[in-house]
Design a protein around this nucleic acid. Structure first.
Lengths: 220, 220
DNA sequence: ACCTGAACACCGTTCAAGT
DNA sequence: ACCTGAACACCGTTCAAGT
C-alpha cells in the first residue's frame, strides 16, 4: 500500500455530486455550470477538474447517483401486465430526472443501475413468447416512446413556466378549416386534450401490438 | 403607402435563412452561432438582430422554411394503413431535420406547414372509428414515439461520429449474469440488434394497439 | 433604416504557479 | 496532491454611435 502524500483533499466527488444535485434542484440543469457548482461547494471552478475529468463525466456521475436510488417494484408475473408495469416504473424513474433524456445518448438507459428496467422488459417479452431479437426490439420501441414522452412533458412544463402563449395558441386559431378539417374540428379543445397524461395508454397499446395475442387481460 | 426612407437593407431574412441552412449542413446545429452565421452572410452578428428578434426566432424561421418543402404523399384510404403511412411520412420529414426535435417544445410539430401530418393521423384514427379524444391521444402517442426514436437515432449517429466506445460497450461486458440474465444473454449481439431500424415495427404495433380490431390487414 | 464596434455577462477548459 | 488566478476561446445580446 503506497503512502499517500501531499495535501489532503478538501472536496470529494460525493460532495461535488451532492452540491450539483442541489444546484439542479434550484436552477435546473441549465443552471448547472462549473462556476456555479464551485460556488456551491465553496471552491473554485478549476478545483473541480481535479475530481472530475470534465462536465460530461460529472453528468454521468449524477446519473449513477440517481440510478442507485431507484425503486425496483415487484412486478406481476403475467407477461403482458409485467411489461406494462415495468414500462410504467421506467417512466416514473426517468421522469424523476427528466434532463437525463437529453444527456443520454443512443439507446442507453442511464447507468448500470438503471439496466434493471430493460432487463425486466426483455424478460417479460421473452416470457410472452417473443424471440430474443423481437424482445430487444420491443424494449427499444418502448424506450423510444418513453424518452419521447418525457422530453415532451419536460418541454411543456418549461414552456408553461416561461408563461407566454404556446406556439399552438398562436397557430390553431388561424387554421384553415378546408386544409385541416380534423384539427380545426378539435380547435380549442386541443389545449385540454394535450394536457392529459396518455403515457399508460400508449404503453398498453404498444404492448398489445408487440406481444403475441394470447396473453392480454384474460389469463391463459 | 408611406415612403420608405433610410439606407436600403443589404441582407434579407431569406438570405439569413439560406446561410443558416448552409452552416447547419456544414457544422450541425451546434455550429450555428450568430457570429458564424454573420460571417457566412458577410456581415456582423449584430446586423442579424435587425432582421430576427433573437436566435429562437431564427430557428423557428428555419423550421418554417423546412416545413414548406415537405412532401405530402398520397395515403392509402384503409385506416390502419393510412395511419401507418402518415406516421412513416412524418418520421421521414422530421428525420430530415433531426435538430427540430430538440428545438420543438411540448407537443408541437414544427410549424403550420407540418400540421399536415397530425391532420392525417387524426383523420385516419377517426375513420377507423375512434372518437375525437381517442384520435388526438393516438396522434400524440405516435408523435412521442416518433420524437423519441429520432432523438435516439440522432444521438447514436453523433456518438458514432465522435468515435470512441459506447457507454454500452463499457457496461455490457461486465454485466452481472445473475442480476441481468436476459441482457447478459443478449450480450455482444446488443450492438448489432440496436443498430436496426425498428421504427416501422413500432408504429405498426402502436396502430394495432390503438385502433379498434376490425380493420387490420384484412379489409372489413 | 440599417449597420458597426465595443462591451457585458456569461460559458468550459488549460496552464503555470502556489502551498 | 491539491488548489488557485489568470487567461483562452468561445457564447447571445445590448447599446451608443456611425452612415
Amino acid at each position: 500500500m503506497p503512502t499517500r502524500t501531499g495535501r489532503p483533499p478538501r472536496i470529494s466527488r460525493a460532495e461535488i455530486v451532492a452540491a450539483a444535485n442541489k444546484v439542479i434542484e434550484e436552477d435546473g440543469v441549465a443552471g448547472l455550470t462549473m462556476r456555479r457548482l464551485a460556488r456551491e461547494v465553496g471552491s473554485t471552478a478549476m478545483a473541480l477538474y481535479h475530481h472530475v475529468r470534465d462536465k460530461e463525466e460529472l453528468l454521468l456521475l449524477l446519473l449513477d447517483d440517481y440510478a442507485a436510488g431507484l425503486a425496483r417494484p415487484e412486478l406481476p408475473s403475467e407477461p403482458y401486465e409485467r411489461m406494462v408495469a415495468a414500462a410504467l416504473a421506467m417512466r416514473e424513474a426517468v421522469a424523476g430526472c427528466p434532463w437525463a433524456v437529453d444527456v443520454l445518448r443512443a439507446d442507453d438507459l442511464l447507468s448500470v443501475g438503471a439496466l434493471w428496467y430493460p432487463e425486466q422488459i426483455v424478460d417479460a417479452a421473452i416470457r410472452a413468447g417473443l424471440g430474443e431479437e423481437d424482445a430487444v426490439d420491443a424494449y427499444r420501441i418502448i424506450w423510444h416512446y418513453t424518452a419521447g414522452e418525457i422530453a415532451a412533458r419536460a418541454a411543456a412544463r418549461g414552456r408553461r413556466a416561461e408563461g407566454g402563449p404556446t406556439y399552438r395558441d398562436r397557430v390553431f386559431p388561424e387554421l384553415d378549416a378546408a386544409e385541416f378539417p380534423r384539427l380545426s374540428g378539435v380547435g380549442p379543445r386541443w389545449e385540454e386534450l394535450t394536457a392529459r397524461d396518455t403515457y399508460a395508454k400508449g404503453v398498453r397499446a404498444l404492448v398489445r401490438g408487440l406481444l403475441p395475442p394470447e396473453s392480454p387481460p384474460n389469463k391463459p
